[in-house]
Write a protein that binds this DNA or RNA. Structure first.
Length: 578
DNA sequence: CTAGGGTTAG
């Protein structure tokens, strides 16, 4: 992160002459419409500003009609500050007020750095700053994660005697915490003479961002008053920290207290439902959202799509998607990924074409969905061509997850050498997921040599994960290499990994079937049965489910770690490729 | 009403 000294930022203002010369011929360029109107809106240099100013004076237009932020932004970057000051002093508003509005615009713009520049100019030319001035420039510091400037402004706040202003202190707490200085934030929090619900909410959110959900919850319990935002922040916090069950439990408590969820709460709760597969609650929230008109909110529809997908209701997610009047890349990517994990590769690819046709630009996540689709259905050539196209046609640099998908795609298809080559030549250091994908392929295609290569890396990258040892041991066992299998088990024991290799699989297999029987007894005939598990479905269960689905004439949807299996009339949506 | 806190796809 660039964090120039304040004096350095002032030095940057010396580009005045270059800018003036570069832009002086803009006005002589042929412009459609009225060139003067164009100039009035878009002037970019002090030179053009003077032209506009002249225009204002000539036409007798009130000076307050000038786009003041434009004036300020031109002058923030050049030594023409006094010129803008002159103009502002003729406007029928306090000068500080106008500079503050400009600061606010800059702080919220795409280049918040302008606010920092302008702030130092304001200081230099002795405009009297107030608490609003500080709050806007602090906001820019937060957005830019400029701790250095933030500390300067903090000191400045004290110098101005504003150290008791609660709003400012809240922003400063936010600044320190969001810049990773949680201890500074806590220090300030502890010595604040008073705190309000915003102070507490800020701490909770930032603690969650640091991954410290326990401290966040302690504060949530400890705080004197909680508003809807406090509850929402805490629910979202649980979801973000991978504790969706706790999130749902807290939501239930919130309802008991009598608070009604708003749009943001709904997004967080739906995300929790998606993670644990709480379809009933998800449907209830969907109803509620419809009643309150929340479904027009794109965030909510996007999250609904995701929730239905992860709960195994592809149809319901399609309905939400179709009913959306506007869609973002998140909507499309979620839907493509949804089709992919439900084994509808063809539909996923078609949806992608449709998306491109509407002019929506894909991003990295979109391609993850596409590669997933290809991977689950063994579409090797399509996968290769998407992987090439993402960079070539859309300028998206593949990240580790994309490589993981490609390795998965090639390995599943038995192209273990090609997968290994891809890993060897990828520009990022491969992680455990990448080598794990290769190992998975080695199991399916019974390649012991390659499995050993993958294992050497996994051993190093993720030594405490017993799952890989289990896979390797199984590969040896299947090849009847009992001694090697025993060696792996010994290795696990030496590392203190105690999982019972054979017992685990049997137990899980039993559980899946038990879940199915339970579902058959407890649901009306004909209704879809949904089973969730946190590992991969084993081959034995997969075969049984196909059979049972045709006998009882019911759909059985199983969510495993990676995807969905929809069993119907003796067939599975994965077409046995998984 | 010139300022501060909570949200989605992998």
């Amino acid at each position: 992160m660039v964090c120039p000294l304040p004096c350095a930022s002032l030095c940057m203002l010396s580009s005045f002459n270059i800018e003036q010369r570069r832009s002086s011929h803009i006005s002589s360029k042929p412009i459609s419409e009225s060139p003067k109107t164009e100039l009035f809106r878009k002037f970019n240099s002090p030179f053009e500003l003077k032209q506009v100013h002249t225009l204002v004076i000539k036409t007798g237009m009130p000076i307050s009609d000038l786009p003041l932020s434009r004036v300020a932004s031109v002058c923030a970057r050049t030594p023409s500050f006094p010129y803008a000051q002159q103009i502002f002093q003729q406007v029928d508003q306090p000068e500080t007020f106008i500079w503050n509005s400009c600061l606010r615009d800059f702080a919220e713009s795409d280049s918040p750095f302008d606010a920092i520049l302008l702030f130092y100019q304001i200081r230099r030319y002795n405009v009297l700053p107030d608490s609003f001035t500080c709050s806007f420039v602090l906001k820019a510091c937060v957005r830019l994660q400029y701790l250095f400037h933030g500390r300067i402004i903090h000191a400045f706040v004290e110098k101005l005697g504003l150290q008791l202003n609660l709003v400012l202190l809240n922003v400063i707490v936010h600044l320190y915490a969001s810049c990773g200085r949680i201890n500074d934030a806590i220090l300030l929090f502890d010595k604040m003479p008073q705190r309000d619900v915003v102070t507490w909410n800020t701490m909770i959110t930032q603690l969650v961002k640091m991954g410290d959900i326990d401290s966040a919850y302690k504060m949530f319990v400890q705080m004197p008053d909680r508003n809807l935002r406090s509850w929402t922040a805490m629910i979202a916090g649980f979801v973000q920290c991978g504790k969706p069950k706790e999130g749902i439990a807290l939501f239930t408590k919130m309802e008991e207290v009598g608070l009604k969820p708003n749009e943001v709460t709904v997004v967080a709760v739906l995300a929790a439902c998606a993670d644990v597969g709480a379809l009933d609650l998800g449907r209830r929230i969907h109803d509620y959202s419809d009643k309150r008109g929340f479904t027009r909110n794109i965030h909510i529809s996007n999250t609904l799509i995701d929730m239905y997908i992860k709960c195994g209701c592809l149809k319901a997610s399609c309905d939400v998607f179709k009913n959306m009047k506007e869609r973002t890349i998140v909507s499309w990517s979620a839907m493509i990924q949804g089709l992919a994990i439900h084994g509808k590769a063809k539909e996923a690819l078609e949806l992608f074409s449709e998306m491109i046709y509407t002019g929506m630009k894909p991003n990295g996540v979109t391609f993850l969905g596409l590669l997933n689709a290809c991977s689950h259905m063994g579409l090797i050539n399509e996968g290769r061509s998407f992987f090439a196209s993402m960079t070539k046609d859309y300028g998206i640099i593949p990240c580790i997850e994309h490589y993981g998908c490609m390795v998965d795609l090639l390995s599943r298809a038995g192209l273990l050498e090609e997968a290994h080559e891809l890993i060897e030549q990828m520009p990022i250091k491969p992680n455990a997921a990448v080598w794990g994908a290769l190992l998975g392929g080695c199991k399916v295609h019974k390649n012991i040599e390659m499995a050993e290569i993958a294992m050497r890396h996994l051993h190093e990258l993720d030594p405490l994960n017993d799952g890989y040892y289990v896979v390797l041991s199984n590969i040896y066992s299947e090849a009847k290499k009992w001694e090697d299998a025993a060696k792996v088990r010994k290795m696990m024991r030496n590392r203190g990994l105690k999982r019972q290799l054979v017992g685990v699989q049997l137990l899980l297999a039993g559980r899946e079937k038990l879940a199915l029987v339970f579902g058959l007894i407890n649901t009306p005939p004909g209704e879809t049965i949904r089973i969730f598990k946190n590992l991969r479905v084993c081959e034995d269960c997969h075969a049984s489910f196909k059979l049972i689905s045709s006998i009882v004439k019911r759909e059985i949807v199983v969510r495993d770690r990676n995807r969905f299996h929809c069993f119907k009339d003796g067939y599975c949506s994965c077409k046995d490729y998984w």
